[in-house]
């Protein structure tokens, strides 16, 4: 049977649009709130990425750092992340959810225990920012055995030889980092250039779903709609920060921005 992640991509393809992926931080700004946000936006989103926050995030820009620090400050623990995922899946059983974070958290939890827990919480995939190929080979194959997608990242600096190997070792989805940047940077490369590189990745193996992330906002999303999927993270985290600051309802505000994002790629 095809994975939920694969199915989400084919659904979007059938509607002739890219899949919309969002990234929010578990526990931002509380456990309850982040679950509410997740539930609400998932009506418009094809795949939900849920970050497990780390306090030394070496690849994240200011917006996601702020969300992560806020969640940690409010006491989020790894087991809470799993329970958020589990509760989400109880009511949205066909919506794929991907956990994303840094390797030390998995290492401290214990790889096997972590994957066992993912399985129990019905997590569909994992992105580990600081566990690149080939160091991730062992862990990626453990994921596969458990039926969890390990999502490889590819960047503009990835060489052709490396690209081939990474794609060969990948599961259903590949994440292309649009530019040399941390998350939430301003898109400093033209969409045309990004799509050129994207096509090169696609050419290697058409059956893999390739999403583009980093620097995607309401302004830029439309220009990249040819991709299989697009990830928006920092723009959403920023909206949460803004809502908290203005004492507005984060669930409503974030849902609205996600609706607008979706409308741009229909």
């Amino acid at each position: 049977m095809s994975s939920l992640i694969n199915r989400a991509f084919s659904n979007a393809k059938n509607e002739n649009r890219p899949a919309l992926l969002t990234y929010t931080v578990a526990g931002d700004n509380t456990k309850k709130k982040s679950l509410e946000i997740l539930k609400s936006i998932s009506n418009y989103v094809d795949i939900c990425e849920l970050g497990f926050p780390h306090n030394t995030p070496i690849a994240d820009g200011g917006q996601i750092q702020t969300s992560a620090y806020r969640a940690i400050k409010n006491g989020i623990k790894i087991n809470d992340v799993f329970s958020i995922a589990k509760n989400f899946k109880k009511i949205k059983k066909n919506k794929p959810i991907i956990l994303m974070g840094y390797y030390n958290m998995i290492y401290q939890y214990n790889e096997n225990k972590f994957l066992e827990k993912c399985k129990k919480s019905k997590v569909d995939g994992l992105i580990v920012v600081d566990l690149p190929y080939p160091e991730n080979k062992n862990f990626a194959s453990k994921c596969k055995k458990k039926g969890i997608n390990f999502i490889q990242l590819v960047s503009p600096t990835t060489s052709q030889i490396r690209l081939k190997k990474i794609i060969k070792d990948s599961h259903d989805m590949i994440y292309y980092i649009s530019m040399l940047s941390t998350t939430g940077g301003k898109l400093k490369v033209s969409p045309k250039k990004i799509l050129e590189k994207y096509n090169k990745i696609k050419k290697q193996n058409k059956s893999k779903n390739v999403v583009i992330g980093f620097g995607i906002t309401e302004k830029t999303i439309k220009s990249l709609k040819k991709a299989d999927g697009l990830v928006v993270g920092s723009a959403i985290c920023k909206e949460i920060s803004k809502s908290i600051e203005k004492r507005q309802n984060a669930v409503t505000n974030v849902t609205n921005i996600v609706k607008r994002l979706k409308n741009k790629i229909l």
Partner: peptide, 12 residues
């Protein structure tokens, strides 16, 4: 030790 780095830093 090792090199636990984001993909972007692999090449540099």
């Amino acid at each position: 030790g090792g090199s636990f780095i984001p993909e972007t830093l692999k090449k540099p």
